[in-house]
């Protein structure tokens, strides 16, 4: 028995050594980053693997921030080649990258809309950004000072809104969707108040603290990272409103409907045209040092920026990506294929 177990242990040790040698060379692209870009990146990776002789890239969903951390940690096959982000690279991240000798090529791939939606059976909702702020902020300005959010029902905010309890399901703070929502909708709403606008000029940090604090009295509910779950909860509770990415509204158009924000309906055309107020850009970043070392990176960038992928009728649009205007696309493709390094 002992002899047997010892030989098993020896095999395990051998396998460990074999693993170490495997880490020295890599013939497969490794991609990390945002869970929002994940569906698009994986679609391109799969297509790329099928239509070329290169291996299918491995795509990890680590979140934008986590991806940047891995991506910027250095040059070499143990570090990823590409990172996806649902926001632009921060200057602090850029500095880390530069310090570790990473030259970045930025590729903007399209837009993603964030929608507020409720069940088909529920009331139609039309909001302004200010009303979104009023419904969801922890503290709102009233008679010149900040008071804890007094609004219990939508109709408390404006009589045109439904006479139901404010009940909003949204993503937790770890989510990129939450970041973008807070930045675009909540800050946008907060700015409509003169006091807060002045505060933003004088003390940006204090302004952000106000605008980014979601209420914690049960009217805003953190429903987890899974957008499908929010959709299911909306179905069960017609009075609740959910916050998630546009592609989930698109896929579930038979169950839920999007709320107008600032008088604009969250449709594909309105987001693509820039009319819908809560939309963000999506990116991926390429490590220039790895191009030519890990095979297939420039071909992958070529596939991602081809019309068949990100064009108006490309397969990424079927996956829910909202494409960039045609002129932007060709310019970005040019600079991406030319591996123009990002400067900041």
């Amino acid at each position: 028995m002992i002899r047997k177990t010892l030989s098993i242990a020896a095999i395990a040790a051998l396998a460990t050594v074999a693993g170490q040698s495997a880490a020295e060379a890599r013939d497969q692209i490794r991609i990390v980053g945002s869970s929002t870009v994940f569906p698009f990146s994986t679609a391109v990776a799969e297509q790329f693997g099928k239509s070329t002789d290169f291996k299918t890239p491995v795509v990890e969903s680590t979140g934008s921030g986590g991806g940047m951390k891995l991506f910027c940690s250095g040059v070499g096959v143990e570090h990823p080649d590409i990172t996806n982000a649902s926001r632009r690279i921060k200057s602090s991240e850029f500095e880390t990258c530069a310090k570790n000798g990473v030259t970045i090529v930025e590729v903007k791939i399209g837009f993603d809309g964030i929608v507020l939606a409720n069940a088909k059976g529920g009331p139609d909702i039309a909001l302004t950004k200010q009303q979104v702020f009023q419904a969801l902020a922890k503290e709102v300005p009233m008679d010149g000072k900040m008071v804890p959010n007094p609004y219990k029902k939508w109709s408390d905010i404006d009589s045109s809104l439904p006479d139901t309890k404010i009940e909003v399901l949204g993503p937790p703070p770890t989510s990129g969707t939450r970041d973008a929502f807070v930045e675009l909708a909540m800050e946008g709403g907060a700015k409509t108040y003169d006091d807060l606008k002045a505060l933003r000029k004088s003390d940006k940090k204090a302004f952000k603290a106000v605008a980014h604090s979601m209420r914690e009295d049960g009217h805003f509910i953190e429903a987890g990272e899974n957008d499908n779950l929010i959709v299911q909860k909306l179905e069960a509770n017609p009075n609740a409103v959910g916050i998630f990415g546009f592609s989930f509204l698109d896929q579930n158009a038979d169950k839920i409907k999007g709320a107008n924000v600032g008088g604009v309906e969250p449709t594909f055309e309105n987001i693509a045209g820039g009319d819908y107020g809560i939309s963000r850009s999506l990116y991926f970043y390429v490590k220039k040092e790895h191009v030519g070392v890990v095979p297939g990176i420039s071909d992958f960038v070529g596939e991602f920026t081809s019309d068949k992928a990100w064009g108006d009728e490309g397969y990424l649009v079927d996956k829910g990506l909202i494409p960039l205007p045609t002129n932007d696309r060709s310019a970005i493709r040019q600079s991406a294929l030319g591996l123009q390094p990002l400067t900041m």
């Binding site: 491995v58 795509v59 680590t62």
Partner: peptide, 17 residues
């Protein structure tokens, strides 16, 4: 350790993704 990933190819050994 990066196993929450989209991987199309069926792994052929213990060092494949």
């Amino acid at each position: 350790i990066g196993m929450v990933a989209f991987i199309v190819d069926i792994p052929g050994g213990i060092t494949d993704p």
